[in-house]
Amino acid sequence: MKKNGSLSVLLKGLLKENPVFVLILGTCPTLATTTNVTGAFGMGIAALAVLVCSNILISLLRKVIPDNVRIPCYIVVIAGFVTIVQMIVQAFLPGLYEMLGVYLPLITVNCIILGRAEMFAGKNNVGKSALDGIGMGLGFTLALVVMATIREVLGNASFAGIEIGFLQNYKIEFLVKAPGGLLVYGCLIALVYVITRGKAPLKKSFSCAGCPNAANCQTGTCEAPAETVAETPAANSEEGGAQ
């Protein structure tokens, strides 16, 4: 049972609670770094590293940090790890550093990391938080790589920089540009909804609880959750009822 619990903590990030396609967190890097597979993979791993480290530290400190100032504390912890990762990438992978550019420091404000700190690490023990970090990080990486594969193969006729011969004359260049990212993302969200429907957790339970600003947010200001709540749970409960 115990093992089962840990395993499900680890695995839920991959599809059922995929941070990108189900929780809809971290949209900015998802769209920006998926023009090629290499950049997407690098971004995923960098975020994974920050996520695991910050989850562990925040979980260790969860009883020390006063509740009122927890968000600033979390941000400092996360920004610290981001700076470390940034320096490591700059030193050992300068090519990747160039490619990711400003999006590397912007991992700091990636909602996935703050969201998991708030949703999970602030409430659970160290082991589980680390597993959650690994699972969510892998889910994020997986989502980025899937999206980048679609965009790079169809848009640029290559995979991780290696050209694919027979597609050279059929590039859909639109896909590697900004609008293509939004289009592919929208379609993938719909696809994941079809795959997981009925089984995916209700967005309601995440929408506001998962938002780092939930405490400050007054009802009706932020409308994405309200809207998804209005749409999805109704649909989900229908599916659930049918099954």
Partner: peptide, 23 residues
């Protein structure tokens, strides 16, 4: 809108068209 696209899916695709216009 078809069910799977309701909510964020359709919103993102609309954003994609707006982004296309800005290109």
């Amino acid at each position: 809108i078809p069910k799977p696209f309701r909510g964020l899916g359709a919103t993102l695709i609309a954003a994609s068209f707006l982004s296309l216009a800005f290109m």
